[in-house]
Design a protein around this nucleic acid. Structure first.
Length: 808
DNA sequence: GAGTTTGAAACT
DNA sequence: CAGTTTCAAACTC
């Protein structure tokens, strides 16, 4: 699948692969960049000129106008003040835009000299300012502590620059809250700048500040606190670490488009104050992709109403590519969880959450039927959802899963976001307690998504602006430190952007399935779409297709039926493992066996050299499991000693003649099985939610286009996030909350291992509901670790069917 | 694009 | 569980 978009994605991506941020992303993202190009470019040197190419993809079409571009310059008199007047929180985009823009202005205001020239040297668009902003902040972060010592704060510009960077997050509020014009905001900012100078003039007590920050900013874990301390002391290098402490939770949200919507809508009235910018020059202008990325990222965090608005804006249904062309997958658990969330959310916030949730649902539904929008786009943004089939994992993934698990555990321990944090008055409450509360919650929970951070970043100053700055007050320190903290949102956001893009890049590699079913109604495993866990979409040429959201009930029922027959029916056919599957017997394949077909093929005539062969199709070699005849599988023959010429009869004859060998073989298998069981019990079990969160280790590049490779990812995260929002305590058994037949499936078919607490001691046994052997008999040599994982995962997915709502 | 081949899925 | 049928993808022309 050497599509142009992949090429586009792959090459520039590598430019920052060596950066800490990338490394971090790498560690987080379920998408494993497989094409690594060695380009040693640090994050600080990351030029956004490269970003467009990095993320250039058809779905990031020109129709996606930049929200930033749409933003007017704050100084633009035509800019509506609706964001203030409405009393609602402005959209993240607006905040973000102002955030960056005003940071620039702040810089100018604080540094009347050179910086102005820098900023005004060219009439950049706002997003280009943003482009500038990141390095600046990085510079600030990099230099501040040490630089202070070096320069003794003698360089005014340096200090002011720092102050500007520090104050950047404060500016938006300053502007918004100053009804008397920009003077107040400037004064406010200048005071911050001055305070910054004074701070440095008084000895640049960074250590003390950092210490205070560590104390004031209530981190949810010692790690986060430590990381924050580190980031202040060695910012650039520590950004990753700090984000590391924050990101897992963020990523869970961010991975999900749908869930992201929750955030802003929970606050506002639902009507975004943003008014359509009649001037379209921004849109028409060629936009750097970074802006699109930002927009994409932020849009994903916006309320659905904004998305709808954007749809109107585009006036091109189906071109809302970043969401609309998502191929609806059978990630039913998300819908169920979402629906469930409506019931469980407590009063105060439930209305908001529910509102947003419903918006999400509605929006999602609206977008489900994928209408003409370009096939490529469809492929670019296929189902960002849990393909129920894609449930294998590898031991390699344990790290990630473990990490996520820990993060999640922290989340669960966190208090719910208090309503005050979201309440319109929260941002304006002058009280110190209020501030502390808000900040605390932000620290503890605010990272639940970047929007919240951004939002808060723009709101925190609200407190500050209403307070008199006391130079000696701890509040000032807190303000500064919170500003610093807020500036970290930059990094978080960028990380999210990268993650999203990588995620999308991964999705492009698969999920573009199309069937041609005529008689099966796409409700049998004959249908590739159905088998892959995705709905049929337009490219399909199926007839009488029932595999569509409108027939969700039927689909689920059928699926359930099939799974009742074979719980692994929807599991990936090819299980890849990080570690080579142990070969059993000297005669086994000589080829690397990092993956095996779940059940083995049964080819008779194709010699496993054509895609008729599922092994070959899956890009894996045949194994003992296969019953193929005359195997010549290029990826690895079933039996190296029988390559090609022998027929199965020959093999059987040989085996019959070598009975002792067979017995030996069996013994080996037994030993191996036991060994694997021991290993498995030593490994952390994979909780349900985790299994849904991380994509398979499948590297789609190895797979033929039609193979059943699936991406987990976004929606899976949604599932988890929904649980978070609901505060469901038992993340391991979310299925218990499901209703109706889905629950029946869960309890009836959930293997013991999955119904338990997921403790490692549950072992590797995979039992079918009937107690029958789930795996085909050919697994006599025992499952590989990856296969075991796959079993667990697929079975865990069984109960995830939510109650359905007919799609329209 | 139509027809054939193939092997998995489904059925008995 | 084995044999048969059905089915749709893969393949060929």
């Amino acid at each position: 699948m050497d599509t142009p978009e992949r090429n586009q994605i792959g090459t520039p991506k590598a430019k920052f692969e060596d950066s800490p941020v990338f490394n971090y992303i790498n560690s987080l993202s379920p998408i494993k960049p497989v094409k690594s190009v060695h380009i040693t470019q640090t994050f600080s040197s990351l030029s956004f000129a490269s970003l467009p190419s990095v993320f250039t993809s058809p779905h990031v079409s020109s129709h996606k106008e930049s929200r930033f571009l749409r933003r007017r310059n704050p100084s633009d008199p035509s800019k509506p003040e609706s964001s203030l007047e409405s009393g609602n929180k402005v959209s993240v985009n607006e905040d973000a835009a102002e955030f960056y823009i005003n940071a620039e202005e702040l810089h100018e205001s604080c540094v009347p000299g050179d910086s102005v020239g820098e900023a005004s040297a060219e009439p950049p668009s706002e997003h280009s300012k943003f482009v500038i902003e990141l390095p600046r902040n990085l510079k600030y972060d990099c230099g501040s502590p040490e630089c202070d010592a070096a320069t003794s704060c003698g360089t005014e510009a340096g200090c002011e620059s720092e102050a500007a960077a520090l104050s950047a997050p404060l500016v938006p509020y300053a502007q918004k809250t100053s009804e008397n014009g920009s003077s107040d905001g400037e004064a406010h900012l200048q005071s911050i700048c001055q305070s910054g100078q004074r701070r440095e003039g008084t000895g640049c007590d960074w250590e003390s500040l950092i210490s205070d920050a560590t104390d004031l900013l209530i981190f949810d874990s010692p790690n986060a606190s430590e990381a924050f301390r580190g980031i202040m002391q060695n910012p650039l290098d520590s950004v990753t670490r700090f984000c590391n402490s924050l990101m897992p939770r963020l990523s869970q949200n961010d991975i999900n488009d749908e869930q992201n919507v929750l955030v802003l809508d929970t606050v506002g009235s639902g009507e975004q104050p943003e008014t359509e910018d009649p001037s379209s020059q921004y849109r028409e202008a060629s936009q750097p992709e970074d802006t699109e990325l930002m927009q994409d990222h932020l849009n994903s965090r916006m309320g659905s109403n904004q998305i709808e608005k954007e749809d109107q804006f585009n006036c091109k249904p189906g071109l809302n590519l970043h969401r609309g062309l998502r191929r609806r997958c059978l990630d039913f658990e998300t819908a169920g969880a979402r629906r469930k969330s409506l019931d469980n959310v407590p009063n105060s916030s439930s209305s908001m959450l529910s509102q947003s949730d419903e918006k999400i649902t509605t929006n999602d539904k609206q977008l489900v039927p994928i209408k003409p929008g370009g096939e490529s786009a469809r492929c670019i943004l296929p189902g960002i959802g849990l393909h129920l089939n894609a449930l294998a994992t590898t031991s390699k993934d344990y790290k990630t899963i473990k990490r996520e698990n820990m993060a999640y555990g922290r989340q669960l321990s966190l208090p719910n976001l208090a309503a005050s944090a979201h309440s319109p008055t929260a941002g304006q409450g002058p009280g110190h307690e209020s501030f502390s509360s808000a900040s605390s919650e932000r620290d503890m929970d605010g990272t639940e998504n970047g929007v919240q951070l951004l939002q808060d970043a723009s709101q925190e100053p609200a407190f500050l602006a209403n307070e008199e700055f006391n130079q000696n007050s701890p509040k000032k320190k807190r303000h500064v430190l919170l500003s610093i903290y807020s500036s970290l949102n930059y990094y978080v956001m960028f990380i999210f952007i990268f993650m999203r893009k990588f995620e999308q890049a991964g999705e492009t590699e698969s999920s573009c399935k199309r069937c041609n079913c005529k008689k099966s109604k796409c409700l049998k495993l004959y249908c590739e779409c159905f088998a892959a866990g995705v709905y049929c979409i337009e490219p399909c040429s199926c007839q009488e297709c029932f595999n569509k959201p409108i027939h969700e009930d039927t689909v689920l029922a059928t699926r359930k039926q099939i799974e009742s027959r074979n719980p692994l029916a929807f599991a990936p056919k090819v299980i890849r493992t990080a570690d080579p599957v142990p070969e059993y017997g000297e005669e086994s394949s000589k080829t690397p066996a990092s993956a095996r077909h779940k059940r083995g093929c049964n080819c008779k005539k194709s010699s496993c050299l054509k895609k008729y062969c599922e092994c070959y199709q899956g890009g894996v070699g045949c194994s003992i499991s296969c019953r193929c005849e005359g195997c010549k599988n290029a990826f690895g023959r079933k039996d190296g000693s029988f390559v090609g010429t022998e027929t199965e009869a020959d093999e059987e004859e040989t085996e019959a003649c070598d009975k002792s060998a067979a017995e030996k073989h069996q013994q080996k298998n037994e030993i191996q099985r036991n060994e694997e069981q021991r290993q498995d019990s030593a490994l952390p079990s994979t909780p349900l939610r985790l299994s849904r969160q991380f994509s398979l280790p499948f590297s789609s590049k190895n797979k033929p286009p039609r193979s059943s490779t699936f991406n987990i990812g976004s929606s899976s995260g949604l599932y988890t996030i929904t649980i978070q929002k609901l505060g469901k305590p038992n993340i391991l058994r979310p299925e218990s909350k499901l209703e109706g037949h889905n629950q029946a499936v869960a309890e009836d078919e959930m293997p013991e291992i999955l119904q338990g607490d997921g403790s490692p001691s549950t072992g590797i046994k995979t039992a079918s509901p009937n107690g029958k052997r789930v795996s085909p008999p050919n697994n006599e040599f025992g499952p590989s670790p990856g296969r075991r994982a796959g079993r667990k995962l697929i079975l865990q997915s069984i109960p995830s069917f939510p109650s359905l709502t007919p799609q329209h």
